[in-house]
């Protein structure tokens, strides 16, 4: 069953600005990355699905509930971590998260209990009794995640969850998102413009641009292994490249690396023999996987060339 489905979803502001132009989506449970440049319509889509803004046209359902007619029922099972700051400064994390749990329909005692568990899950311990205003950005992001998780949602919408975090905080947050999605059966829709993050965490990728769906598919379809072998040698790489070229291989130099178009088993033996003959140390032989960054770089470069 699709966990999230939209049909011809349109959002216009006034008569000139189209944020979403007839979006058709059908997504299976899992960790879904929502990618697009700033202004592509990621946040608009999430806000429509959460009932925060109305759509101009089209239909949408999440977890089988109609977003527009069954909103309050649906949203008991939905968690949302906004991109922007959304925490009051003058209450403690415990107080705030427990309140949010009750707003999501949990009885008081269950709310208290789950608040403690969820705050531990996101890595907040003794500091959870202090006022939020004294928290670091990393701690605030954790509280934001905790309030989205405290009622054990079936689907979680994360809008740029690593916003403002340092590299270590970023790693921890991504780890947390990944574990939440894989270990507790919570589907996650994570919007980001950082492809590296999406690649690390998500199983499925949705690319939108200018309010249109560009592509939707499992991550591995995007990053299928390419026919490129990366070889790094210790020593005279130019001579090494020349030797391989003479043997009839197509080469692309890339810094100290030599990239070889692979086709069958042949190149592996040639690389081995060339190293042996020239007395070079073989540092790395790797069949390259295309990263998401590469795909989008190619796309924007060709767009630039066309423009």
């Amino acid at each position: 069953m699709a966990i999230l489905e939209t049909r011809g979803l349109v959002k216009r502001y006034g008569s000139s600005v189209t944020a979403l132009g007839g979006l058709d989506l059908s997504l299976q449970p899992g960790i879904i990355g929502l990618v697009g440049a700033n202004g592509a319509g990621k946040s608009t889509l999430i806000k429509i699905l959460l009932g925060l803004i109305d759509a101009t046209a089209g239909s949408a359902s999440v977890l089988g509930y109609d977003v527009f007619t069954q909103g309050t029922d649906l949203r008991q099972f939905v968690g949302y971590m906004p991109e922007h700051d959304c925490l009051p400064g003058d209450v403690s994390a415990t107080e705030f998260v427990a309140h949010m749990a009750q707003i999501n329909g949990l009885p008081r005692s269950a709310a208290r209990e789950r608040t403690a568990e969820t705050l531990r899950h996101v890595g907040l311990f003794e500091e959870r009794y202090r006022e939020i205003r004294g928290y670091s950005t990393g701690m605030k992001q954790r509280v934001k995640l905790a309030q989205a998780l405290v009622h054990d949602p079936r689907i979680l919408f994360l809008d740029e969850p690593t916003n403002g975090l340092d590299p270590a905080g970023r790693d921890e947050m991504l780890d947390l998102v990944h574990r939440t999605g894989t270990e507790f059966g919570i589907s996650i829709v994570m919007a980001s413009h950082l492809l590296g993050e999406i690649e690390r965490v998500c199983e499925h990728l949705v690319v939108i641009d200018g309010g249109q769906l560009m592509r939707s598919g499992p991550i591995r379809e995007f990053t299928a292994t390419t026919g490129t072998l990366v070889v790094e040698v210790d020593g005279d790489s130019a001579g090494f490249a020349a030797r391989l070229e003479k043997a009839g291989l197509t080469l692309i130099p890339e810094g100290r690396n030599v990239l070889i178009a692979v086709d069958g088993e042949g190149p592996y033996d040639l690389v081995r023999d060339a190293c042996d003959d020239l007395g070079l140390g073989l540092v790395r032989v790797e069949l390259r996987r295309q990263s998401l960054e590469d795909i989008f770089r190619e796309k924007t470069e060709s767009a630039d060339a066309a423009g």
Partner: peptide, 22 residues
């Protein structure tokens, strides 16, 4: 250490009225 804690919740969800009262 974050492993401590998170569990799934199967209890009641009291919905809109409870949310407003809270």
């Amino acid at each position: 250490i974050y492993d401590l804690g998170y569990r799934n919740y199967d209890g009641v969800r009291l919905g809109r009225r409870h949310a407003a009262m809270s």
